[in-house]
C-alpha cells in the first residue's frame, strides 16, 4: 500500500467562514493522508490560521464538515478534539510562561492520561510523568533547558517548545502554524530534522512561510489565497504552477 492510497487522517469538506463581509474561508476542501506532511502556504491574511482554528475547534465554520480519523468532529469542542488526537502549535506562541520547560511538556503528557483529578501526589516528583515528558524534550533537543522557566526561553526555543508540547499529547495529527517563524537557522534546521523524522508516525498539516523548509518537508502542498485553495499537489507541480506564481508571488519568484 502506497502512501497516496492510505485513508486520509483528516478531511475538510467544503468549509466556509465569514467575518461579516469578509469571506476568510471559501469552500475549502482538503485532505491530509496518513504518513504525509501536507503544507499549506499562502500570503499573509490568506486565512491559514483561521482554517487551523476551525479544524482544532476554536472557530466555528459557517458551513462544511471536518472529518478526523474517520469521524465527523465538527460539533466537538477544542479539548474534545485534542483528546481524540488533534495536536496543535500556535502561530503566536502559547506556552505556559510561569512553568518550567519540563512542566509545560509534562502537562501535555498528563492530559493524555485522561482526567487530572489527582489531588495528592506531587507532580514534580512523579518520576513516571517526568520521564515520559523528558522523552519529548530529548526528541527536540531541549533536554538541557528542562529546568528553565519557559517564559525565559529565547523566542526560537519557545517555538521549539510549542512543537514539543504538541508532540507530547501523542497526537494522531499535528496542526503546525508557522513553527519556524522567527527561529534562528540552527533551530529551523533542528525542527526540519525532527519533523522529517516524525512524519511516518505523525501526519502533519504544516503552515509555513519558510519555503526551503516547506520544500524539504512537504509531500503535498496546497496554496491558499484569499480564503480559497487555488492549487494543490506535489511540490514540483506547485513550484511550476503559473497560477500560484501569479497569485502568490506576483510573477517573479525563486519558488
Amino acid at each position: 500500500m502506497t502512501v497516496s492510497e492510505a485513508a486520509p487522517i483528516l478531511e475538510l469538506q467544503g468549509l466556509n467562514k465569514s467575518y461579516g463581509a469578509l469571506h476568510v474561508t471559501k469552500d475549502v476542501s482538503l485532505t491530509v493522508r496518513r504518513g504525509e506532511i501536507h503544507a499549506l502556504i499562502g500570503p499573509n491574511g490568506a486565512g491559514k490560521t483561521t482554517l487551523i482554528g476551525q479544524i482544532s475547534g476554536s472557530i466555528a465554520p459557517n458551513s462544511g464538515a471536518i472529518v478526523f480519523a474517520g469521524e465527523d468532529v465538527s460539533s466537538l469542542g477544542v479539548a474534545q478534539r485534542a483528546r481524540k488526537g488533534l495536536g496543535r502549535s500556535f502561530q503566536i506562541t502559547a506556552i505556559l510562561p510561569a512553568f518550567s520547560v519540563l512542566e509545560n511538556v509534562a502537562l501535555a503528557v498528563q492530559a493524555k492520561d485522561g482526567h487530572s483529578f489527582r489531588f495528592f501526589k506531587r507532580a514534580s516528583s512523579d518520576a513516571e510523568l517526568n520521564n515520559r515528558a523528558k522523552v519529548y524534550l530529548e526528541m527536540v533537543g531541549m533536554t538541557a533547558r528542562a529546568g528553565l522557566r519557559a517564559g525565559d526561553l529565547s523566542h526560537g526555543e519557545k517555538r521549539v517548545l510549542e512543537v514539543a508540547i504538541a508532540l507530547a499529547g501523542g497526537p494522531k495529527l499535528m496542526l503546525l502554524d508557522e513553527p519556524m517563524a522567527g527561529t534562528g537557522p540552527e533551530e529551523t534546521e533542528r525542527l526540519v530534522t525532527v519533523l522529517h523524522g516524525l512524519k511516518a508516525k505523525i501526519p502533519m498539516l504544516l503552515i509555513e512561510h519558510d519555503m526551503s523548509a516547506v520544500f524539504q518537508l512537504a509531500d503535498r502542498i496546497s496554496v491558499l489565497v484569499y480564503g480559497e485553495i487555488i492549487a494543490s499537489g506535489a511540490p514540483e507541480d506547485i513550484r511550476r504552477d503559473p497560477a500560484v506564481r501569479e497569485a502568490y508571488l506576483g510573477g517573479e519568484s525563486d519558488l
Binding site: S58, V78, Q80, G87, I95, L96, A98, A108, A111
Partner: peptide
C-alpha cells in the same frame, strides 16, 4: 496562564 493552550492539549 493560558487557557487556549490547555484546551489545545485536551484539558477543559
Amino acid at each position: 496562564q493560558n487557557e487556549a493552550r490547555m484546551e489545545a492539549i485536551g484539558i477543559d
